[in-house]
């Protein structure tokens, strides 16, 4: 809904906006938000939150960089980095599932921890802070910057994520369990669902998502830095919540998150085209977030219908 409104709005405002080419290539700038936000949707649906994802992006970036600089093949370095990030997610998940510390506190701690580890890795390999490690081989740089079948690779990646995670959340037993745990953790336990495993696994997915997102960023800038993505966490959560996922758990869709990520990204792009600065867009995104939540509250019945409609289109789409 937002997206369509926005397309029309900016289309009227600036004729150049509806140039498909422009639109599609603008996605490169924010694809990483969507890639991290999609798995984050799972965490928030279970009623949790993971603020360490931004740090995980940096961790992923610097791991790839240091391993590659250390002589490892770039693709092996990439896989190792993803494994490291999934393990980081596992640590989050273990603490959240097996202690009664709130997810926000746990991931706040690991946010510092992972950012710290990334710094230690980078410091230990004496990669200078600002420039990072650069000079990656072309195939790696092409991950984020290349074009396949006329579309930027980042769009393919987002589509791929939408399909895989959309199917996982909306069509599989695992996805169903994620919802049930988020709606009522105790009832899920009494129904024989392995609640701890479900909760833990969503954090692993979020870690993996952060890892992939970090790699895209590294490839996009062609430079590995420990602080890549340090500011990403708030836009990521914004995208998830704006996409209709309830911060209280139990509701949300992957499609919604994808649309919201694109809305936020397009908004940046569109507002800049129509002569606004990127600073002004953060104001608009912030206001939009608040207004979207307020609207949902006041129009609960209307929105309920919209939700059901939305859900069925998701199923059809994937």
């Amino acid at each position: 809904m937002f997206l369509v409104g926005e397309l029309i709005f900016f289309g009227l405002l600036t004729p150049g906006f509806l140039n498909i080419q422009n639109l599609l290539f603008s996605m490169n700038d924010f694809a990483y938000i969507g890639l991290a936000a999609i798995p984050m949707t799972f965490v928030i649906i279970t009623g949790g939150i993971d603020v360490s994802v931004g740090s995980i992006m940096g961790l992923s970036s610097i791991t790839v960089g240091v391993l590659w600089a250390g002589g490892l093949h770039i693709w092996i370095a990439l896989i190792v980095a993803l494994i490291v990030c999934t393990l980081a997610g596992l640590l989050n998940g273990l603490i959240v599932a097996f202690t009664d510390v709130q997810p926000l506190v746990v991931t706040l701690g690991t946010m510092f921890l992972f950012a710290g580890i990334a710094l230690v890795i980078s410091g230990g390999s004496s990669a200078t802070g600002y420039e990072g490690i650069s000079g990656f081989p072309n195939p790696f740089v092409q991950i984020a910057n290349g074009i396949t079948l006329g579309l930027p690779n980042s769009i393919w990646l987002i589509l791929f994520f939408l399909l895989i995670f959309g199917a996982l959340l909306h069509l599989t037993k695992y996805g169903r369990n994620v919802y049930l745990v988020g709606i009522n953790m105790k009832a899920a336990k009494y129904s024989g669902i392995a609640t701890k495993w479900i909760v833990m696994s969503t954090y692993m997915l979020a870690g993996l998502g952060g890892g992939i997102s970090g790699i895209i960023l590294t490839s996009y800038f062609s430079s590995a830095r420990s602080d890549l993505g340090a500011q990403a966490i708030l836009p990521v959560i914004t995208a998830v919540v704006l996409g209709g996922t309830s911060i209280l758990g139990g509701r949300g869709t992957v499609l919604g998150t994808v649309i919201a990520s694109i809305v936020v990204g397009m908004m940046n792009y569109g507002l800049q085209l129509s002569g606004m600065t990127s600073e002004q867009t953060t104001i608009i995104v912030g206001v939009m977030l608040i207004v979207a939540v307020v609207m949902r509250r006041f129009n609960i019945n209307y929105v309920k219908k919209w939700f059901i409609g939305n859900r069925s289109t998701t199923t059809k789409g994937s």
Partner: peptide, 9 residues
């Protein structure tokens, strides 16, 4: 309510 139903589904 606490252990039986998933109320918003």
């Amino acid at each position: 309510h606490a252990h039986g139903i998933f109320n918003i589904t």
